[in-house]
Design a protein around this nucleic acid. Structure first.
Length: 862
RNA sequence: GCCGGAGUGGCGGAACGGUAGACGCAAGGGACUUAAACUCCCUGGCCUUUCGGGGCGUGUGGGUUCGAUUCCCACCUCCGGCACCA
């Protein structure tokens, strides 16, 4: 290992030598990655190369930078113990963008933190008997070490952990602002319960009826829980998508699906005794005349009242209880028979006065719409199946192309058509009829057009230990009361046993539990549930801008300066979790006038997953490739280069051990090339006139300039990192080919060659910062991370010789080199001289000649 | 069923109306070596050939165009999301 100080020493030594000294004396003959990487990581830390965007050395806010700001952010890691390849790819992408923008003159902010609360650390702690805080602290230290070993240019001064009381204090503070506004509320509802994790879950954390985390089958339980009213923002979340122009279409589509807006009408039905009103939501008010029965969900609050004292009561209530016991997966299965029980009651269809029977059926969901529906079996598949099953009447109200008013229905007819058997709606198209029916209802006070959403409120309370305590005190007289701001944070108490038992472990700590009511001072009980960790990560991107602020969660001026995030990068798996929640939080904070923007992430890039042996890498499958192993064997630069070279960054890609070797071989070639390059300090871009006598040199400089243009566009605009790397490889290959002492090609001039090598090193820097800093320094440069990103010289991008393709009827018949910029006539003359072209045209009549300047000639012949 | 995305060599992929297969991996041949590894050089879409070449090729079928992997229409397959959501 070299000592830290020998960097300057080495440089000084070179300057004192004769100018023709070979670089062999400076660079070791073999590229030794760990040696190089350690040296440069130390240099960056010592010069504070990547810190101080928001905070100066003295802790005060930094001066605004003259350049444009650029907030580059990757989704913060959950500290489960080790980073995996997905993280490496994620953070390397962010690092490449951050480095590129910094060298282009932007004020770059590139922070890092840890999503440190949550179940895995807690479960690990339960297994080992350690405190979750201990496990988490160790994991964070480990991850930080790994990130530093990979050489990421992170502003470590702003590092945060969501489990730090100085952070979660402000999570609680924001929760209280929502509570004050009625956006956080406690209410009873049928909620998802994970029997394994022993806690409730948000809707977004249930996948196909199973716990997203542990895979257990989720049960539905009627419980009183804390909700954040994200549904109040359903429309805003849809509308503001227009501010998200650079988000991947699939993420927007997923959010749209998840929010699930549907336009329809609310229709008020009354029981035939005129005592109760039961509204329904329908997207098809046009089919109101086709409603032949009426269904309520088993959980419908009116159900017990409706059947009270009737002969049907026992059967109905027993059916409702059975439905309540069913798991979410069973309940939502679409392929089982449509069960239901007649309640003995009837409601009146407001549009035609029909008296129709009320049934209870478990395919009607309590938490969508109103928990009751009008059943139109003629035009809804599910209602059709129910009608068949229970022998209920089916009435056609929409005629199809081959079906009149009296054509019997073999299946539900859900397509568009003209209304029949529908009184005043007869003859109207479905769409017109829907409007007419809604208007008719509105006039008579029996309903109105309305919008339904699939999105549910966000259930945030958890009956687990390792999370943010909900800052509420329950008073027998005053109800739930906010903990005053000055008493924050409500610290997570120590408990004897934090294993899950179906209620929060915090309840086992009597000192924590007992509290005085902040409102009346009387004895009260502290809320013991903790928050979903997605709450923690819904605002962390704001905290980075003022991570040590002690009197507010963030400073508005700094937040408004840095946000929205200019480039956010993460996995698509958070499309309807974190990304939806964070958008919601930002809108709430904007409505509270705490920030001046409505969207947190202006541009989003979702990376693909890394697979191996056809499956996602996971410990249980035993197909994990450890980043540490790769770093130890080939170096961090090789790993960084490879994860981006594998393929398009957005695509899922299969890991290849051989591919890594290829990346390392490329760095070895570059090393050898730089080592063999003519010595001396950095050279300036050669002037074209000095190269005219040397086509190879000119060609090499041209290629260098083209590479600059390609790499700049690929990083800056296209996120096409693999093609940027391929372009640099082409440049390096060209240099190798034209090296004075090797290859079969004609050698390039020493200045041109050296310049081309410099360019390759310079633009490779964002991908492989350590080795390029080493080579740059050996070439006579300094502080490559601060060197202005090169602009391609336009005059070199204009070619003076081009390859012309000659086609006959669109088929390639010949290729030739020609001077650039020839006129159409000159090109045609030139091309017709060619033997191949003559041969291809013999005996043919040319009907048309197409000339694309400097590219192609196409003879259309008959 | 609805909504998104994608189909190109042995493999990952490139080519944003103009040379299909850049770059890399794997493979074959050669140089170096006592030998091997490393490294370097050469050859690699398929079929055919009198070795000049010729034909066919980007999921399938149409269309637009002088010219289509690229644009349009229909279909097939795969991946992802939503789905008893009224």
């Amino acid at each position: 290992m070299r000592a830290a100080g020998d960097l300057g020493e080495r440089r000084a030594r070179r300057y004192t030598r004769a100018p023709m000294t070979e670089l062999h004396d400076v660079l070791p003959d073999r590229y030794h990655a760990s040696d190089v990487e350690e040296r440069w990581q130390r240099a960056w830390a010592q010069t504070r190369a990547f810190t101080g965007a928001t905070i100066s050395r003295d802790g005060t806010p930094a001066e605004p930078s003259p350049g444009p700001k650029s907030y580059v952010l990757e989704m913060l890691p959950y500290p489960s113990g080790e980073i995996h390849m997905g993280h490496v790819k994620n953070y390397t992408m962010g690092d490449v963008i951050a480095h590129h923008r910094r060298r282009c003159g932007a004020a770059v902010f590139h922070p890092m933190g840890y999503d440190a609360f949550g179940l895995p650390a807690e479960n690990a702690a339960i297994r080992t008997g350690e405190h979750p805080a201990v496990v988490t602290a160790r994991n964070i230290a480990r991850i930080r070490e790994q990130l530093q070993r990979l050489g990421f240019a992170i502003d470590w001064d702003t590092e945060i952990s969501t489990a730090d009381p100085e952070y979660y204090r402000w999570t609680q503070w924001i929760f209280l602002r929502m509570f004050e506004r009625g956006l956080a509320e406690r209410r009873e509802a049928a909620v998802n319960w994970c029997p394994t994790d022993q806690t409730v879950l948000a809707n977004e954390q249930v996948v196909d009826g199973h716990c997203e985390r542990c895979g257990a089958e989720v049960e539905l339980r009627q419980l009183t829980q804390w909700f954040l009213r994200i549904t109040d923002y359903a429309q805003a979340l849809l509308d503001d998508m227009k501010l998200l122009e650079d988000w991947p279409e699939r993420v927007l589509a997923m959010q749209r699906n998840w929010i699930g807006r549907s336009d329809g009408a609310r229709v008020r039905f009354r029981t035939d005794d005129d005592v109760h009103e039961i509204p329904v939501f329908t997207t098809r008010p046009d089919t109101l005349f086709g409603a032949t029965f009426f269904l309520v969900a088993p959980e419908h609050p009116l159900l017990a009242t409706l059947v009270e004292g009737r002969g049907e009561a026992a059967a109905v209530m027993s059916y409702a209880r059975a439905a309540a016991r069913a798991s979410l997966a069973d309940r939502s299965a679409t392929d089982k028979p449509k069960t239901g029980v007649f309640t003995g009651r009837y409601v009146i269809n407001p549009i035609n006065g029909d008296r129709i029977p009320v049934w209870v059926a478990d395919y009607v969901l309590m938490d969508y719409g109103t928990g009751a529906i009008m059943a139109v079996p003629g035009h809804d598949e599910r209602d059709f199946a129910f009608a068949k099953q229970h022998d209920l009447p089916i009435r056609r109200v929409v005629a199809g192309p081959d079906a009149g008013a009296d054509t019997p229905l073999e299946t539900a007819f859900a397509e568009t058509g003209r209304l029949v058997n529908s009184g005043f709606l007869d003859g109207l198209e479905v769409e017109e009829a829907a409007g007419a029916a809604a208007a008719w209802l509105a006039e008579r006070g029996a309903g109105e057009a309305t919008v339904g959403y699939r999105l549910r409120d966000w259930l945030i309370s958890r009956q687990r230990y390792w999370g943010v305590p909900i800052p509420i005190v329950h008073c027998p007289d005053c109800g739930p009361v906010a903990v005053p701001d000055e008493q924050l944070p409500v610290l997570l108490p120590d408990v004897e046993d934090y294993s899950p038992k179906g209620q929060s472990p915090l309840a086992a700590n009597p000192e924590f539990l007992a509290a005085a009511c902040p409102s009346c001072g009387g004895p009260a009980r502290r809320e013991t549930d903790t928050m979903d960790t997605f709450v923690d990560s819904s605002w962390y991107y704001l905290r980075y801008t003022a991570p040590h602020l002690s009197n507010a969660p963030f400073e508005r001026a700094l937040a408004d300066y840095w946000l929205p995030v200019d480039q956010y990068i993460g996995g698509v798996e958070h499309a309807v979790l974190h990304l939806l929640y964070a958008r919601f939080f930002t809108k709430v904070l904007n409505d509270l006038d705490l920030v001046g923007f409505r969207e947190p992430f202006a541009r989003l890039f979702t990376q693909g997953m890394i697979y191996r042996d056809g499956a996602k890498m996971s410990k249980s499958k035993g197909n994990v490739v450890s980043p540490d192993e790769i770093v130890a064997r080939y170096g961090a630069d090789t790993l960084r280069l490879y994860v981006l070279f594998m393929g398009p960054a957005a695509d899922d890609i299969e890991w290849s051990d051989r591919g890594v070797v290829g990346a390392r071989r490329f760095l070895d070639r570059l090393w050898a090339l730089a080592r063999a390059a003519t010595p001396g300090g950095l050279v300036a871009r050669p002037v074209a006139s000095t190269l005219t006598g040397s086509p190879v040199s000119l060609g090499l400089v041209r290629r260098a300039e083209a590479t600059i243009a390609k790499v700049s566009a690929d990083i800056g605009e296209r996120f096409s990192f693999h093609t940027a790397i391929a372009a640099i490889q082409e440049l390096v290959n060209a240099c190798t080919r034209h090296q004075a002492d090797g290859g079969t090609g004609e050698p390039a001039g020493p200045v041109a060659l050296r310049y081309a090598v410099q360019v390759a090193v310079s633009v490779l820097f964002p991908f492989a910062p350590h080795v390029t800093c080493e080579l740059w320094s050996a070439l006579g440069g300094e502080r490559l991370w601060e060197v202005r990103w090169p602009d391609a010289e336009g005059t070199y991008l204009v070619k003076d010789e081009v390859t012309l393709v000659v086609q006959v009827n669109g088929k390639v018949r010949d290729r030739l080199q020609a001077p650039a910029g020839l006129g159409d006539a000159a090109v045609l003359d030139l091309v017709r001289e060619r033997d191949k072209v003559r041969g291809a045209l013999v005996g043919k009549r040319v009907v048309r000649e197409i000339v694309v300047p400097d590219r192609l000639v196409n003879f259309v012949v008959s």
